[in-house]
Design a binder for these strands. Structure first.
Lengths: 349, 349
DNA sequence: CTGAAAGCGCTTACAG
DNA sequence: CTGAAAGCGCTTACAG
């Protein structure tokens, strides 16, 4: 007997009737709570508000096919938005425009302190309620709490270039960090360098680990030694390059080349070398990672691993749109990186 | 007799009934057209589609006060999104979040070729139909067509740092380009330079004109000559700095300092100087404009005019939100800029 | 403070 | 191909 479970049916999305039935009140009363009217008893209001959340009430159906109801995806970014983020956004917006999808953009729900799970659930519910079909995240601090909140709200998620891979299964689009580290290091080895240091990012970051392991693999394959002092960890920043670069250059047996985990760090290493009167690339070769706008503008122009951030964004959007279309999408998708040789690398003298 | 003009009432927004009445068909038929059903005669469909546009039909009312109906502003950017754009976005998104406003982001409706007015009107109508309350534009090519389309759709507009000021009245938020040019040039004059060149952007760009006039004003006040050969025009790019910088440095009486209209151009000028064996700042002082991420990472770190792009975005949002609140907002709002002195400037030797 | 009832804007199965 | 009619999900003035 279909429909015998009435308003409580698990099939469709919750309506006011669903909630009203489970609260034992009329539809009108639920509507009033929803609209913030004052003529509702506080106890009733509280009960209804709880039930609205429990039922994941997200407002009336908005037809995705309607002329004025273009589907919308939410682009969530954490931390400071930089040139790299700008390129990602560009890629997403362009790809979305082609598919007539709207892109909304917002910051991550995580503030400075820990955010309770209930807050995350409310955040995800709000997105779903506002008609978002899916979420693309460019964040470093994706938590399992985010994941469960989004999944409860039935919002598919794609993560771009995640720093910390959560244990749970998430669809992600990233660049081939391992291959990048490998290629960068091989380039230096090919020039004749043997003493090559790695100045990278946080040990906990998946992308840093991959870059570092690419470096180690290339060194190992070539039989080049990797003393512990040659591998340093920072936060991918310019300042890290200055400080860690100095440490490495002041070693008793300093490297003749440095592979930096990011362009910013590479710029810092160059600065540290300059402060010591070392010429680039005659006295020290430096390779970066990312190929940001400023890489070609450095003195000397930086040899670096090019990551096509725009492509990263476009691919994330496509993965999402395919998975919304019911296709199965691989959990992890990696885009190729390429070595851009400029003037910061040369054979050791 | 109120209501005697029935469905055609000019008061509220158009409903299916409005359109159905003026088309002389039933509401059901209009609904079908709207939903792309096939069982509608082609002539009827065409007529209804025209009328839907004429009546600015934008779908059923979405209560702005509803929990799930946060107001949304559209952020439209033209051209390539760079680090500067990223900071603007950050400022807008943060400010919007505080006011519980959603930000949607999209590219400019202008493609490569000229876009007919009807297309622009449709674009603006679609935005209004999708529930946008206002538009923030970061574009170089704002046309009077855009303006009229948005105004017909009753969408308030704020323009950020417009390159070309359209003649019509638009609310804009920009940085004090004139003051920036003045301060940059005064800094060089104060160091003792007299032969100072300006390598800027397009003559047609309002912001370039302002920067250049600031330069001229400072030079004039100090009695420093400005030969025509000292003022060059490019497109704010690195390549312009390389090429125009070379031209200026190869003059019979070359400048001892260059004020560049952008950081990118400044980087190019530095490169041109380096190619000629000139040391910075000993042989040539260089000042940039924008204080982009990479300015402090250049060799030497660049003295430049800092524009707080994030503040630019935040101010644009605030101007918009005030004007939506019924307040009168000044047509043009300028934010202060400040001189950041680094190592690319020194007294002439 | 609550809900029955009227009503709005929309969609759709169905009769013609 | 068109529209009358039933119906859905929601809101609100009003009676109690």
């Amino acid at each position: 007997m279909p429909g015998s479970d009435g308003a409580r049916s698990r099939a469709g999305r919750a309506t006011l009737a669903t909630v009203a039935a489970s609260a034992g009140v009329s539809i009108a009363t639920v509507s009033k709570v929803l609209n913030g009217r004052t003529d509702v008893g506080p106890a009733t209001r509280a009960r209804i508000e709880t039930l609205l959340k429990e039922h994941d009430y997200v407002g009336p159906r908005r037809d995705g096919t309607r002329a004025n109801g273009r589907p919308t995806v939410e682009l969530v970014f954490g931390g400071k938005l930089n040139a790299y983020g700008a390129e990602i956004i560009q890629g997403i917006v362009d790809a979305a425009a082609q598919m007539s999808v709207t892109v909304a953009i917002s910051g991550s729900p995580h503030g400075d302190q820990n955010v309770p799970q209930e807050r995350l659930n409310a955040w995800a519910r709000e997105l779903a309620g506002a008609g978002r079909r899916a979420v693309i995240a460019v964040v470093n601090d994706l938590t399992s709490g985010d994941l469960s909140a989004l999944s409860r709200a039935h919002l598919p998620l794609v993560v771009i270039d995640p720093l910390n891979m959560p244990r749970a299964r998430v669809t992600s689009v990233g660049s081939t960090n391992f291959a990048g580290g490998l290629v960068a290091t091989q380039h230096l080895l090919g020039l004749g360098h043997r003493r090559i240091a790695y100045v990278g990012g946080p040990l906990s970051a998946a992308c840093n680990q991959a870059r570092m392991h690419g470096y180690r693999a290339a060194m190992e394959a070539d039989g080049a030694p990797v003393p512990d002092t040659y591998v340093r960890s920072g936060h991918f920043l310019y300042e890290d390059g200055v400080a860690l670069g100095a440490e490495v250059l002041d070693l008793a047996e300093p490297p003749t080349a440095v592979f930096a985990g990011s362009d910013e760090t590479a710029a810092g290493v160059i600065e540290a070398a300059r402060a010591r009167g070392l010429r680039i690339p005659e006295d020290l070769s430096v390779v970066g990672f990312d190929d940001l706008d400023f890489a070609r503008v450095l003195a000397p122009p930086l040899t670096t691993i090019a990551v096509d951030a725009e492509d990263l964004g476009a691919s994330a959007f496509e993965a999402l749109s395919r998975s919304l279309g019911g296709e199965t999408v691989p959990d992890e998708q990696v885009l190729p990186v390429s070595l851009t040789v400029r003037e910061s690398t040369a054979p050791p003298s």
